[in-house]
């Protein structure tokens, strides 16, 4: 194998490792919120530094490959896609950390089971976990079609987020003393919605890398 190919193989492995870590960060953050597990939330916060370290490492790796090997065609698309996927993954991990922080910083936050059910928080959490996993599967197998569903799933996530606002508003009217927790809950939805957006960005990069298609700022249903 040529030197560039070896470099690309280890870059790919770093991205996969980072991706798995980010997946576990998001699913742990979701689980921590749903089960009010402060220890788990603290664990997520602790591992945030590991994600940041991956981000820096992958950035440097991409920069070196471009400077030293001037990749072209699929190799170039791969490095460019990785460069962007890297920063999207880091943002996703930031949001997971932000969600955990709500628990870590507010030991008193206990969310009502009723509002959690009515807002479909669990569905939303499952959905973004699924999107992240689909992205990784597509990337690992170099099969863009594995990532195709992510765009419509992102729309579903947006929809759950929008509907949750009304549910929470109604709940606050009935339970004004819980307004603070409810604002935190809106924050959680907002972060999950942003995670969905970043998953969709990642899916675009996967299509760019594998199929050389630019899907950015275009309707996604015609694929």
């Amino acid at each position: 194998m040529r030197h560039l190919e070896q470099e690309l193989v280890s870059l790919r492995q770093d991205v996969i490792d980072m991706w798995r870590l980010v997946i576990s960060q998001v699913s742990n953050a979701g689980e921590a919120i749903l089960s009010f597990d402060k220890d788990l939330a603290a664990k997520v916060s602790l591992r945030e530094k590991k994600v940041d370290a991956y981000e820096l490492k992958i950035d440097g790796f991409c920069e070196n490959i471009i400077a030293l090997y001037q990749p072209v065609a699929i190799d170039l698309r791969f490095v460019l896609a990785v460069f962007k996927i890297n920063s999207n993954l880091e943002r996703i991990a930031d949001f997971a950390n932000g969600i955990s922080h709500i628990l870590v910083n507010n030991p008193s936050v206990i969310l009502d089971a009723e509002v959690i059910l009515d807002t479909r928080l669990q569905v939303m959490i499952n959905q973004v976990n699924k999107m992240l996993a689909q992205g990784l599967e597509a990337f690992e197998n170099e099969k863009s079609n594995f990532a195709a569903a992510i765009f419509s799933e992102d729309s579903q996530v947006d929809e759950i987020n929008e509907k949750s606002v009304q549910v929470i508003a109604d709940y606050i009217q009935k339970n004004p003393d819980r307004a603070y927790e409810c604002l935190e809950l809106i924050g959680i939805f907002r972060k999950l919605e942003r995670i969905g957006d970043h998953c969709a960005n990642i899916a675009e990069e996967i299509f760019f890398y594998i199929d050389a298609k630019v899907l950015k700022h275009s309707p996604k249903d015609k694929k």
Binding site: R2, P71, V72, A73, I74, D75, R77, A212
Partner: peptide, 17 residues
């Protein structure tokens, strides 16, 4: 040719494979 060649053989050549 250097971002997305049509032919696999071209891609192999320009990427050095």
């Amino acid at each position: 040719i250097f971002t997305n060649p049509k032919e696999h053989s071209t891609q192999n050549y320009v990427t050095g494979r």
